[in-house]
């Protein structure tokens, strides 16, 4: 509700089992908790798509295709060059996957958001809690990914750990606008379109598998416009221990702009749908 900007009411409910509860201290964490309870039941099913698949890609492309690329890329073996790209593109896939059907379902099928909006949560809490969960999914997936690729010896610098905040920001940069998108479409077939015309071209052309310099000028500009390329460049600089092609601050600001713009848009669409 537009006028809901009063201070958060904090009540000590622990003092008595019968005390009247008012609101959660940080309402978005209560929302995050809900998703984590669900995650406890479903994480096994997600392991394949979010973790095994990229590992298989590392093996297939990195070792398989890499064997044919004798001179490597930019003076490093293809596997080492590819891994940071896959870190970023995996983060993108997880963030997109978790902000399409789940968001759509929370409006249309299970109607979780409606259940939540009847509780003392604001639209911003409902949105922030779900975004936090997407962030959790991105970070756990990438942490596991780093572990495995580290064991392969594909991470060349301790700076590799810096990929975690980078993918977190990338996750928000793609999830927030996607939340807005998934909240506004009327049929779930629009969600598949996002993968067909967004994720796949982005993954192919944003510097994951080959340098964007190989692209013709027009396509290259398009690649620079994607949030993915900015994360790829940062991740690659981190795992290889070199300077990124762009300024770090420029990359981060660009991603932050997507995240912030997306979050504001998503809040507007959520409010329009939930508060009518």
């Amino acid at each position: 509700m537009d006028g809901e900007s009063g201070a958060v009411i904090v009540v000590d409910v622990a003092s008595s089992a019968r005390a009247r509860p008012t609101r959660s201290r940080v309402p978005a964490f209560a929302v995050l908790h809900y998703y984590l309870v669900g995650y406890r039941r479903t994480w096994r099913a997600g392991v394949f798509s979010s973790f095994l698949l990229p590992v298989l890609t590392v093996l297939g492309f990195g070792l398989g295709v890499g064997a044919y690329i004798d001179q490597g890329v930019d003076g490093v073996p293809y596997l080492d060059w590819l891994v940071p790209g896959l870190i970023a593109s995996t983060a993108l896939q997880v963030a997109l996957g978790d902000s399409t059907w789940p968001v759509f379902s929370n409006f249309q099928w299970v109607k979780t958001y409606y259940a939540q909006s009847a509780a003392p949560l604001r639209v911003g809490d409902i949105l922030a809690g779900h975004l936090l969960y997407v962030l959790f999914r991105v970070l756990t997936t990438i942490a596991a990914f780093l572990l495995v690729t580290g064991l392969f010896g594909a991470l060349r610098s301790p700076w590799a750990l810096a990929t975690l905040p980078v993918v977190a920001l990338l996750g928000l940069a793609v999830a927030a606008p996607t939340f807005a998108y998934s909240a506004s479409v009327s049929s779930d077939s629009w969600l598949a379109m996002l993968f067909r015309f967004g994720v796949i071209p982005m993954t192919l052309f944003a510097g994951v598998f080959f340098p964007v310099e190989s692209l013709p000028e027009g396509l290259r500009q398009l690649a620079y416009a994607t949030p993915l390329w900015h994360a790829v460049d940062l991740c690659r600089a981190a795992t290889l221990g070199v300077a990124p092609q762009w300024s770090v601050a420029g990359h981060l600001l660009y991603l932050a702009a997507w995240a912030l713009g997306g979050a504001l848009l998503a809040r507007r669409v959520f409010r329009r749908t939930l508060v009518v």
């Binding site: 008012t22 209560a30 509780a119 003392p120």
Partner: peptide, 20 residues
């Protein structure tokens, strides 16, 4: 608008969290 994937009890306890 219960969560069909959660247990009966989890539907209550997760909802209780929203009230702190």
């Amino acid at each position: 608008n219960l969560d069909p994937e959660l247990t009966v009890q989890e539907n209550l306890t997760t909802y209780a969290r929203y009230f702190g």
